[in-house]
Structures are given as C-alpha cells and as structure tokens.
C-alpha cells in the first residue's frame, strides 16, 4: 500500500494587492483588489510505505503548501490525496495519530522546560499509557543518544542536540509516516551527519516512511533513494537520486598538469578551455557532445603528464541547474 498518494493536487490562495503609496492605500480601502496565487498546480505523486523520499524545490515552490495539505491543515482547491488511507483534510485528528512532523524552523519542544517534560506531554496528547510511554522514551533516548540531555532545559541545548530531541519527540507515538521539513537547517557538518544516521536507523528499525524537505543536497543524497523536485507549484523532476546524478552529471571538469611547458595555443576540439597556464590547464566538456576518449588522448599527446583530476558537479549544482532550466 502507498503511504502517500496524491493526484492532481491544486491550491490557489487569494492575496490582497495594493498599489504603492497613499493613493494605492486609499484605493485598496475603497475597492480591495485580489490576486489569485497558484501555490500548487496539479501535483501527483506516490510514496511507498517505509520509503525515504526527498521532496525539494526553491523557496515558494509549493513544498510547504503540499506538506500542509498532507497533514490536513490546509484544504486543497481541488485534487485528491490520501495519507495512510486517510483523506487528510477530512480526518485530520485520526491522521495525526499516525504521522509525525518536524519543522526545522518551528521547534515543538517547550523552550524553558527539559525535553522530557515535552515528551510526557506528547505521550498524553497521543494517548499513550504510562508504561508504554516510559519504555518508548528510554528506547528513543538510546537510539538518538540523548539520555544525558533529556533533563536539561531545551534552551541550554545546542542546535544539533535540540534537533535530535525534536525528531525523537516526533517519533514517540510510533508514526508510520514522518514529515521532515528542513531538519538540518543551521546544523554543523558533524551534527548533520549524526542526525542523518539516526533518521536512517529509525527508518530501518521501525520502517517509518520519511518525506524529507531540505535545502541541503547532502541530506537528500545520503538519505533518499528517490527524489521529487518541484518548482512553481509543479513537479519538474522525479526519479532515483542515482539516476539524477547519472543523467545530469555529464559535464566533467578536468584539471591537468604537465612536466614541461605547454604550447600557448593549447586547445582540444569540443572542449571549453577555462584557464590555460604555462604548465597546466583547466577545461570543461559535456560527455553527451564530446566523448571521453579523444579528450584523454588529446591530453596525453600534448606533453608529459604530471597529474590529471576529473571532477563532476555536486548534486547541489545539478539541482540548481534543474531550477534554472525550469525558470524559463
């Protein structure tokens, strides 16, 4: 069964418009003008049970709106959606027992209290009995390595520690789907790695499906097998992360160094020269246009090679290239 299935989802907001200055303000009072903003324009996708799915896009792409519809907070203008078999906006409370959510920019832990107090509150909110709640807390405390932190007021925790507590809190009621919206925002490299590992472990241990929104391509690359990219309220790409890399990582950058001086007019056909120095050069080519072999043999023929480095763009570059392509 699919954990999430969305068909042709649309959401249109009405926003007020006002021309600049006093005249505009007065006119808006007399005759308010509205503009329809299409935040989500016919999105369809599926997420399998237990899947880790990346859901990314630039600011204002419609990600958050989609997630809010999926949690039942927003009503769509049209279209269908089912999360674990529930229609979110009709059965919000029943669904709430089955899903968890973490919004990186909206902490849910009570700031002045130790995390364990919020854990007990959530336990009651999700109607867990005391015995199960205690066992669940000690299980999660161990899995997230937060045993030592639980009794410290949340305001005294580092951002990385706090975020581990946030994710643990969202899993107290053993949800089957977890919505993670920018969980790694503001975290340092080590804290990010640790958070990713824990999410991965919980996915393996309990089979919780994760819909992950992130601006950090690293999150997507390490956690998700599949990714959906949205822009302007539409899906612009969906496939495996590995396919995304294979398909878009065709541009190679080559750094080459020689033991002897290069000819000043050093060029290779079908290759864009970025920089040519006396003993080395930097160039770029697309394997779909120029095959690898003539480039490499051309490099070898130009002199005695000291070193060659071939690099690919990062996933981040790929994603921004996709955004740029869909801006047009």
């Amino acid at each position: 069964m699919n954990a999430i299935s969305v068909r042709n989802l649309r959401k249109t907001f009405q926003t007020k418009r006002k021309a600049a200055g006093l005249r505009g303000s007065l006119r808006a009072l007399w005759k308010p003008a509205f503009q329809d903003v299409e935040a989500v324009r016919g999105i369809s996708f599926e997420m399998e049970a237990g899947e880790l799915l990346g859901f990314i896009g630039p600011n204002g792409a419609g990600k958050s709106t989609t997630i809010k519809i999926l949690t039942g907070i927003l009503h769509p203008s049209s279209g269908e959606a089912a999360v674990l078999g529930y229609v979110p906006w009709q059965e919000r409370q029943a669904l709430a027992f089955q899903i968890g959510s973490v919004f990186g920019q909206r902490p849910q832990l009570w700031y002045h209290l130790p995390a364990v107090d919020t854990f007990y509150l959530f336990g009651k909110i999700y109607e867990l009995d005391d015995g199960s709640l205690k066992r669940r807390i000690s299980f999660l405390a161990e899995a997230f390595e937060i045993e030592e932190l639980l009794e410290t007021p949340v305001r005294k925790l580092s951002l990385g520690q706090r975020m581990r507590c946030e994710v643990a809190a969202s899993l107290l009621h053993k949800p089957r789907v977890l919505l993670l919206d920018e969980p790694s925002i503001g975290l340092d490299v080590v804290a990010k790695q640790r958070l990713r590992m824990t999410i991965q472990r919980m996915n393996e241990l309990e089979g919780v499906g994760v819909l992950l929104t992130s601006h950090d391509a690293g999150d997507i690359e390490t956690l998700c097998r599949r990714v959906i990219i949205v822009n302007h309220g539409e899906i612009v790409y969906r496939d495996k992360v590995s396919a995304l890399k294979r398909r878009y990582l065709t541009v190679k950058t080559v750094d080459v160094r020689y033991n002897e001086q290069l000819a000043p007019d050093f060029r290779l056909p079908g290759v864009e020269m970025l920089k040519v120095g006396r003993y080395g050069a930097k160039m770029r080519f697309d394997t779909r246009i120029t095959p690898v072999e003539p480039v490499i043999s051309g490099l070898a023929a130009a002199g005695s090679l000291a070193d060659v480095t071939v690099s690919e763009p990062s996933l981040e570059d790929v994603i921004s290239a996709i955004y740029a392509r869909t801006e047009a």
């Binding site: 069964m1 299935s5 269908e80 089912a82 078999g85 529930y86 229609v87 059965e91 029943a94 027992f97 089955q98 109607e127 867990l128 009995d129 199960s132 066992r135 669940r136 009621h173 053993k174």
Partner: peptide
C-alpha cells in the same frame, strides 16, 4: 483511496483507547 483501518495500532501493539479519561 479510502482503506482506513478500524483500529489504530500503537507501540507494543496496543489498540488505541480514546476514552474520556484519556
């Protein structure tokens, strides 16, 4: 699209009990 379960399973397989007390 509606295959809602009758009971909601909880940790340790407990069935949710939406009593007034809860």
């Amino acid at each position: 699209m509606r295959t809602k379960e009758a009971n909601v399973l909880y940790p340790e397989g407990r069935v949710r009990d939406p009593s007034a007390a809860a």
